[in-house]
Amino acid sequence: MRRALAGAGIAVVSAIVLLAAPATATADVIFDQADADDLAATLDEAFQAQGVCYGWQINVDNVGMNEYSTGSNFGAGVALSEADDISRCDARIEFQADIRWTSESSEIEDSASYRVDSLPSGPTTADLDSLELVSEDGLVSDDVDVDVYKAVSALPLLAADAGVAEPMEASPAPETAAESAGGAPTNSPGSDFWREAGGAVLFSAVLLVGGGVFAFWALRSPAARRRTGPTSKPETPAYVPPEWSVGGDQPTRPTRQPGRPGAGPPGAGQPDGPPPATPPGDRPDDSPNPDSRPET
């Protein structure tokens, strides 16, 4: 009875441990099996010609589930670190990447990193980057398989360029091979001119339209008037009104200056002679204004 209880306890603990551990899938998360086999065969051709072993190791955190894609010239699913014939390799070059796919509801963005691991020496990640075949953005896109395929296929080229391996030469195939297979190019790649200069042409169009708008605006604007700034000489008006003064609550009216030249509009001036008689007191402006008296 005690032994049975102990066995049940072990089973429960094992189940809890399995549930707590991250799940691991076994299928290739990047490639279909046929593509992985094609890539492994390509690497095997390079291995036979160069004596250098090539492989790929992609680890994917797929919303908490650990998945991977691995392969080498020894076959799809066979990592270089697990190969039995690794002693046959003059050098080992592997494309490695870590990709994290998050759920749609997560605020954390997908992320990826990659590197080229060469033993004992060989091409570096910078060498691969210079080919512009793979990027971190590409590894989190829907075309991750294309990027990985190209990056791994380029490893033998990089090895030859780094002097680790002999370069492999290619020769044009007879045209009859494609004809017999019914091969023909499809999906036109588009204009080279627009791909190369489309941005510049668009930019120039924006500039030309902007210039046209400014020209139209300028034509619609009135001609510039002569500026009269503070430094210009003030002009003397032809008519200078008489001085104005304010006296108490009385309404403002011009100060009478009968003897002053120019006092009054031309042609409507005061008649010569004494001003009309006005009773004292009716002309408050006539009274002496202490404020306007000049100081002595």
Binding site: D35, V63, T102, V140
Partner: peptide
Amino acid sequence: GGGPGAGK
């Protein structure tokens, strides 16, 4: 190929 399509 193209993976499971679970990513964003």
